[in-house]
């Protein structure tokens, strides 16, 4: 059985177009425009992409956004800060979900 994630996969990501060119190209246009520089700089958007890649645990995206970060002059120190910000928010999200338990206990507990 071949590995599910192969670092050579990124090079033929575009082959997915053939299964539904119309939707593929709509997505590609949306993705391209969303990551263009606007009020946010290119570097800020790269870091957003990196954070999403981590939380979605996507090896392809982590590879791609690390390369983009290097090309933008960002270093592992920058990515480590972004990683910790991402991880700490994820921890906060987990804790915030404990509010459901907290609220139920407040309502039903004695």
């Amino acid at each position: 059985m071949a590995a599910y994630f192969d670092d050579a996969d990124l090079a033929h990501f575009g082959e997915l177009e053939k299964h539904h060119p119309e939707l593929w190209n709509l997505w590609l246009k949306y993705y391209g425009q969303a990551f263009e520089e606007g009020l946010l700089t290119k570097r800020e958007k790269i870091l957003i992409g990196f954070a999403v890649a981590l939380t979605e645990k996507c090896p392809y995206c982590i590879h791609s956004y690390t390369s983009q970060a290097q090309a933008a002059g960002l270093t592992m120190e920058h990515l480590a800060e972004a990683g910790h910000a991402t991880a700490s928010l994820r921890a906060g999200v987990t804790l915030a979900h404990a509010l459901v338990a907290h609220n139920l206990d407040k309502k039903t507990g004695m």
Partner: peptide, 11 residues
């Protein structure tokens, strides 16, 4: 490293 810089203005 083994890469090029794509964004001189941002840098």
């Amino acid at each position: 490293g083994a890469f090029t810089i794509a964004d001189q203005k941002g840098m």
